[in-house]
Amino acid sequence: MELLLQTLLNGVLAAGVYALVASGLALAVGVVGIVNFAHGEFLMIGAFVSYLLFAARGIDPLVSLGVAAVAVFLVGAISYYGLIRPVLSAPELNQMLLTFGLSVLLQNLALLLFGADTRVVSPPYQGATLSLGGLSFGVVPFAAFGLSLLILLGLYWFLGRTRLGFAVRAVAQNRLAPGLLGIETQQVYLLAFGLSAALAGIAGVMLSVMLYASPTVGFAYTLKAFAIVVMAGLGNLRGVLWAALALAMAEALVSTYVPGGGGWVEAVFFLVIFAVLTWRSWRRT
């Protein structure tokens, strides 16, 4: 029983960062309609901001969260302005190749600047642990989960309750009508894409504490984030949270209860997605 509770807790905590990375991606896909292959590189920039600030000035990653959010928002905004905007009406495949090119560019720029080494930050609370009646978990993953949840709730509130959020949703649903309503589509896109990048940047700072910073840190998470967004259904931001939770839970259960399960985690993750996608497609009609 205790093992089961601990496993469920592990799953829930892991879901937080998944959901955060995926939500950013969902914004870009859902609102701007861009499948952004470079999302992982935005995350990587966040991780390096955290590493560089820590290595050079000893600045705590908690502070870097804000810095990275702003910095990566700007990177996202610039990318939107310079690269995405010109191809907004181009075929989807062209947009994908463009963001893939951006991903290759950013990743290798980081390689050139920082080398392929894995780098770590060392805030004092990194290994801190909380115990609760036989259950035990890390302070950092717990805080990251909490923060992810807060950010997501904030995002839902923004989209559901504010004028600007309404504009974003309007644009997401219809690309023509908002113009008629006097909503500046371009500005909404800029905002949404920047926000999407900022979320990735924040996740990057979290990962720099929990994992590491390196030019390739974004890759694994982005792949999974894509899968989560798609499983939730494009444009379904709330679904992202549930999809992340379900998948993280499946991973935790398999690697805890199946002997040798650690090697099957990826397969189970993608098997669940495959099953959900195909099952849903056959259920319609």
Binding site: L3, Q6, T7, N10, G11, L13, A14, F137, P141, L207, M210, L211, Y212, T216, A220, E251, A252, L253, V254, S255, T256, Y257, G260, G261, G262, G263, V265, E266
Partner: peptide
């Protein structure tokens, strides 16, 4: 007792929990 994992995934809590017993 041996358990495989995927490198770079960064998620070991589940396997380590399994090792606890």
């Amino acid at each position: 007792q041996a358990e495989p994992f995927k490198t770079g995934s960064g998620n070991f809590t589940a396997i380590l929990t399994r090792f606890k017993a």
